[in-house]
Design a protein around this nucleic acid. Sequence first.
DNA 1: CGATGGCTTGACATCGATGACAACGCGGTT
DNA 2: AACCGCGTTGTCATCGATGTCAAGCCATCG
Lengths: 378, 378
Amino acid sequence: MRERVTLRDVAHLAAVSAKTVSRVVNGDAHVTPGTRARVQQAIADLGFQPNLVARSLRVGRTDVVGLVVESLADPFFARLTSAVEQAAHERGLAVMVSSVGNREPEREPLIVESLLVRQVAGLIVAPMAQSHAYLAGAGRRTPIVFVDRLPEGIVSDAVLVDDLAAGDMATRHLLDHGHRRVAFLGSELRNPTTRLRLAGYRRALAACGLPEDESLVAVGAGSAREARAAAERLLDGPRPPTAIFSSNMRCSLGLVPLLHGRGRTDVAVVSFDDFPMADSLVPAVTVIDHDPEVIGRAAAERLFHRLDDLDAPAETVTVPVRLVPRGSGELPPPGAGRPRRRDQDVVLAQDGSQDRAHNGAGGRASTMTSPHAQEGAR
Amino acid sequence: MRERVTLRDVAHLAAVSAKTVSRVVNGDAHVTPGTRARVQQAIADLGFQPNLVARSLRVGRTDVVGLVVESLADPFFARLTSAVEQAAHERGLAVMVSSVGNREPEREPLIVESLLVRQVAGLIVAPMAQSHAYLAGAGRRTPIVFVDRLPEGIVSDAVLVDDLAAGDMATRHLLDHGHRRVAFLGSELRNPTTRLRLAGYRRALAACGLPEDESLVAVGAGSAREARAAAERLLDGPRPPTAIFSSNMRCSLGLVPLLHGRGRTDVAVVSFDDFPMADSLVPAVTVIDHDPEVIGRAAAERLFHRLDDLDAPAETVTVPVRLVPRGSGELPPPGAGRPRRRDQDVVLAQDGSQDRAHNGAGGRASTMTSPHAQEGAR
DNA sequence: CGATGGCTTGACATCGATGACAACGCGGTT
DNA sequence: AACCGCGTTGTCATCGATGTCAAGCCATCG
């Protein structure tokens, strides 16, 4: 094992003080070209690399951001992580990831703590826990940006998808194609994301003047297996739906194979979350596309702004979703004539309905921000 | 912003020295129950959390492992990362991930350096660069485990999949179902993984007494789009294949939609790498399953062993693959009668052909290890 | 010619924890 | 009573970098 090379070794070889080496390493201008050259030569000769741990201790903060997600095996979070990592890398920051695990939201505080004690400069958290009041103290020291869901019990920066608009858009799409019995398939209602998508579903029904039929709302399916079972109950009920809005990927991974297995590909489907091969099925699956890359980058950038200005008010960034028509969502209900139209273009949803702010930005990668007052933080 | 709470603050409140607090925090036995209780009370009162950066500086090593992969957006690496992260968490280690990017293997040394200067305790690297001689110095200080591919120009711990056996198994499976014109679709040949799978393909052909037909070998497709184009050339050639071994997921994501789009689902396909929905297509896609979780965990455990014993000889762990018959790989060639049999069971490949060691382990998650002499490291 | 000021450079303390070692107190031994 | 030994606790230096401040040097200016 080679010995560790430190500033002092370089200083000794270059016959200067450690401080001068530090100046050269940090690009301080107050060093004469001659000394600078001597030091750089010594650095090269010894292969010196500054010890970032020591630097972090001294300056009181690391150049690492922490990221807490539910599961890296989930493609949504994987792509989100990828985007965060890229954005961080561009800024010279490293990323520590930790996953909480699908079934154990109660571990979230522990995971977050384990990153905080490592003195991360900031955190990006996809919240699972019911309350985030436990962060009230920590959040003052370490900036936190929440993604995907709003934290409860704390005011903070956040990046959200417009779940309400998405649920509305998906449902309306099916209604526009003539369906009148549209089912909602979703996971636990204590998940705010599911709640918002369901609210969007209801809003679309209401806008269309349709009554709600609770027998068409199947929630609580936490896994593909449970979603499959829930979908079977829907299909086998007395008045089955002609169209289904599957409100997340796990549900779709239960629903779609079921429909194919039963030969029931006549049932119209819109899925929240795109998934690989969704466009190779027959019919290809119409999806609401989430764009985790856009969300991840927006979260990273929100965090960077926060690092640059710790006192600015908290902001919420809303990322638009888009509907990608591929066939399954454009199937007509049984007995209908030809579908009224065939969508070919991507439809953008962005009505800012989750938030106070409104603007007209509609591009795929565009986002909108809205300030929050800091009042009420505790 | 609350002030940072340090050991000294706790010491002051508990009326002991900082050292005693340190002893309590680290569970040192040489503290009387009375003082221990007083200190713990003070810790609780102040909400003290030890600063791991300071500890790391003092003890000379962090409790963080670095992971370098090609892209987190790739489900294989995402699941691998997930497994590494879980294993690390169980050992109280954090994980820093960095991705190199699909198209720029030359960035690998920079990425690795950026983790080394952060004093990671160890590294897990999915190599992309052509040579890893640049690690010869660093590798003596920081243990490195390579995954997925063997490093070049250095001897080190590694975790590999048995690519040769996998290529052999996939090809043999198609030959067993009566095919005589089996094509190979793969990415760049400078990728050792592709080379090994191709070697397996050739071994199976040779074992079957078939001549090689270079017009059936399509390599160099780095993206799904290029793979699609390469597959089109295969199908449109003068003597098209009746079966195709698609040697990685990107190739399959080009090939499979092409076959479906053209209505050529009569062409038999075996895909290396499973992918979501592969079993919902008609026919479902027969795959060689990689099991990134097993690979990731094996890599993490190899690294942990290394951390516990820095002087042990380097070892290579080989992870078995399995063939999952689902339909597309069992299609008969045109003109054949009924297929001879329908495989229902999972087939395990583990002949250790990449390595000197042999054993009979065959369970899904089993691995085999073989020691390497350290000779030849430079 | 001496004072002033700007620039380069270095000495020293410091970030927060822990290792080495010493001091201390207490009980048991001879 | 003096001594020894053991277990508890504290002092001090240290990990490797950087912030503070001042010394040293040279040039310019009154």
